[in-house]
Structure formats: C-alpha cells, structure tokens
C-alpha cells in the first residue's frame, strides 16, 4: 500500500535526530512534529520568528499574536524564543538550522526543486522557500510521488520555475525513500507492499535500484 500523508510524515520523523533545530514547511512537513520520538531533544523553528514551537493551542486558548508560518495558531514550549524576520532568516542562511523539511511540486535528479509557481495558473509567491533551500545543508522533500494527473513529480529536469538549484538531498514519497546522487535517484526504501516495478512506473527521472530495496519501517 502507498503511504498516507501521515505515514510519510512518520517516516521522515526518523530522520530527525537528537539536538536538531528543524524548520517544517506547510502541508505534510507540519505533520512530522507529531511523530518525533519524545526521548530526544528537538526544537522546531518557524520562519515568522519563533524557536521552540509547541502543539496547537487548546480550544479557547488561541493567541492572535502567536502563529506559525502557515498562519495557524500555535503554542510555545519551555525554552522557546521569539525574534524578528531578519534574524530568523539569519539563522537559516547562517546554517544554524540543522534540517529543513518541505513540500515540492517537482524535484529533478540533480537536486533542483520547484515548488512556488505554475505560470499563469498559480502565482502566490515563494515565501521563505528560496531562502531555505539555498541555505540549508540538509533538505528533505516530503511529497506524493505523482501529481493529481498521475504524472511523476520526480523528473530528469524540472519543467516549472525553480525554487533552488542542486539543493535537495533526500525525498520521501508515498512510494519510496530516495536519495539524490550524481547518477540519479537512488531508491533506499520502498513503502510496505509496494514493488520496485511500481516505483519505476511512477518515476520519470533516472532511477538507481540496488539489488536489495528494503521495506520502510516507522519506528
């Protein structure tokens, strides 16, 4: 079975290590916070100016002065701090944030990413995505393997306007965990019950398939 969005988030949560400062994008990445082990110390950064983001508030305890980058009401945890936008992107450009997890419309096998614009259809802006992908050392993309039309989002080269060049290191989709290498998309793991053939059929870029592709585990 292909993974649900929650399961994609759950698999990515395994990549979050003790002591990491992590920036989560909107959509599937936001869900990752729900699955991070509670025996490790991790702080979530939201680029609108908070480190140490906590869960959504209890009903009735929403604070309009406390939101995340998706404009959702949030809470803070012990050790949290607030700062302004220029310092927030200072900690991003300065590579003080250890891991960035974000969504994408397309990823190319050289690590290029497109996730901000569909010419003449969707022009909402890049928000902080260009700053994040150009600065972070460790970027994981969380996305479905194919788009709504069933076309591969993993391509030889991106067709949409780029957000950043050569920056993605790893992709977790509903079908597979994939690493970007010099030679193409290296399949590291497959979703439970998904065959290598199904991954091949859903991928437009060059795939590298080792002899053994283990099934994902979630804990």
């Amino acid at each position: 079975m292909a993974l649900s969005k929650e399961q994609i988030a759950q698999r990515i949560a395994k990549e979050v290590k003790d002591g990491y400062y992590v920036n989560l994008g909107i959509g599937i990445p936001t869900l990752v916070a729900n699955y991070v082990r509670d025996d490790i110390a991790v702080e979530f950064q939201s680029e609108n100016g908070v480190l140490g983001m906590g869960p959504f508030p209890w009903e009735g305890e929403e604070d309009p002065d406390l939101i995340n980058a998706g404009k959702q009401t949030i809470t803070t945890l012990a050790g949290a701090s607030f700062f302004d936008s220029s310092l927030s992107f200072g900690m991003i450009r300065g590579q003080h944030v250890d891991l960035t997890i974000l969504g994408a419309m397309e990823v190319a096998q050289n690590g290029d990413i497109a996730n901000w614009k569909i010419p003449e259809k969707m022009v909402k802006g890049m928000g902080g995505a260009m700053d994040l992908v150009s600065s972070a050392e460790n970027i994981i993309v969380a996305m479905m393997h194919t788009n709504r039309a069933g076309e591969s989002k993993l391509l030889e080269s991106c067709s949409l306007p780029l957000t950043g060049v050569g920056c993605v290191k790893k992709i977790v989709t509903n079908l597979a965990v994939i690493e970007i290498t010099d030679k193409g998309f290296l399949v590291l793991e497959r979703a439970p019950g998904i065959s290598v053939k199904e991954i091949e059929a859903a991928t437009a870029g060059t795939l590298i398939i080792p002899n053994e592709v283990p099934e994902m585990t979630f804990s």
């Binding site: 680029e47 302004d84 220029s86 992107f89 902080g128 260009m130 700053d131 950043g164």
Partner: peptide, 28 residues
C-alpha cells in the same frame, strides 16, 4: 524571497546599500 525581503528592510535601516544572498540563485 522572504529572507531577502527582511534583509532589504534591515539594510535600509542600518545603512547598507546592498548585500549578497544565496536565495534565488539559479532561479528567475
């Protein structure tokens, strides 16, 4: 890009006419 927007404000505030950033390199 959001970080560039913030820094273009901060630069105006602190008297820096321009700065180099990686954000947007290789894009339109």
């Amino acid at each position: 890009p959001q970080g560039t927007l913030a820094e273009r404000c901060r630069s105006a505030q602190v008297g820096i006419p321009a700065f180099f950033t990686p954000a947007g390199y290789g894009t339109e």
